[in-house]
């Protein structure tokens, strides 16, 4: 067994040398809407190739019908584990690849919906694949399957009706989840429902050095400022290919730090002299 989704269980199966993932559903209606999503996404000119392999029902010895479908099996690590194992150097590339995948869905006028760490598989060299399409929703419809902490509505930043910005908001939360999962969990626990807002998320992003180059980008994503995954991807790409890859070069020169320290110290001295003078006068 590979895992358990909201709509059923996923098993690893094989045909000859090829491995596939097989998902068995509980309710055939829920499973069918997932299958419809996959079908729409395995359209003709999709670079993902065909996602969906086969759809059928299995009749148990007790005579119960269990719907199932098989799809491509993607081997890899989940995004958080991948970064933990291979280093944060990979983060900009994973982000870009993920945004491009989202852009492809948005081009078909679908959103992924339930974007979260667990639903992203990263291959050997940073190739990104989305799995579990239970949350996939056509533009304009309501998102049925989502995860609270990634949800725009949960943070009081908009509706649950499907538009590209919904996925991009979740992507923003995902960035925080990668680098500060504990702080994020604590944040959502401490805040009252009505006080949750993108402000808190942006503030948390400010504390994470790895996200520093993407701060503006994240603000825009939390603000619903991108109307399409493709647009968001090209903004992300522009940042990735412009900044200095090593943080060291951009650090403040030492002489500047010394000067700043000197000016702060002298400011303090003058201020305290003034204060002394003032109190002296009063007496």
């Amino acid at each position: 067994m590979l895992g358990e989704g909201a709509n059923g269980k996923v098993y690893l199966v094989s045909k000859g040398w090829q491995s596939y993932a097989l998902k068995m559903g509980v309710s055939s209606i829920d499973l069918q809407s997932e299958i419809n999503a996959l079908k729409a996404l395995s359209g003709d000119d999709s670079s993902r190739g065909s996602y969906l392999m086969d759809v059928d029902d299995w009749i148990t010895p007790q005579g119960k019908e269990v719907p199932f479908y098989t799809m491509r099996y993607v081997k890899g690590l989940n995004m958080a584990n991948y970064i933990a194992q291979h280093g944060a150097d990979w983060f900009p590339l994973l982000g870009l690849n993920l945004l491009r995948s989202l852009g492809e869905l948005h081009r078909e006028r679908w959103i992924f919906g339930d974007l979260k760490l667990e639903n992203i598989i990263v291959g050997e060299y940073g190739e990104v694949d989305l799995i579990d399409f239970g949350g996939a929703t056509p533009f304009g419809k309501g998102v049925k399957q989502f995860t609270e902490i990634y949800d725009r509505g949960y943070w009081n930043e908009g509706s649950r009706s499907a538009d590209a910005a919904y996925d991009l908001f979740s992507f923003g939360v995902l960035c925080l989840q990668v680098f500060a999962p504990r702080k994020l969990a604590q944040l959502s626990k401490e805040l009252l429902p009505q006080t949750r807002s993108a402000e808190q998320l942006i503030e948390l992003a400010r504390e994470i050095p790895q996200l520093a180059p993407y701060r503006k980008w994240l603000e825009q994503a939390f603000d619903g400022g991108f109307s399409h995954g493709k647009e968001a991807a090209s903004a992300w790409r522009a940042i990735t290919h412009q900044r200095k890859p090593t943080v060291k070069n951009t650090a403040t020169p030492r002489w500047l730090k010394v000067m700043i320290a000197i000016s702060i110290v002298s400011l303090c001295i003058t201020a305290s002299l003034y204060a002394l003078d003032y109190t002296g006068l009063l007496r």
Partner: peptide
């Protein structure tokens, strides 16, 4: 021996 891993850079190139 300096800076970002060339393997990450190569994956960037591929993308």
């Amino acid at each position: 021996n300096v800076g970002m891993s060339p393997i990450v850079a190569a994956a960037h190139a591929k993308s």
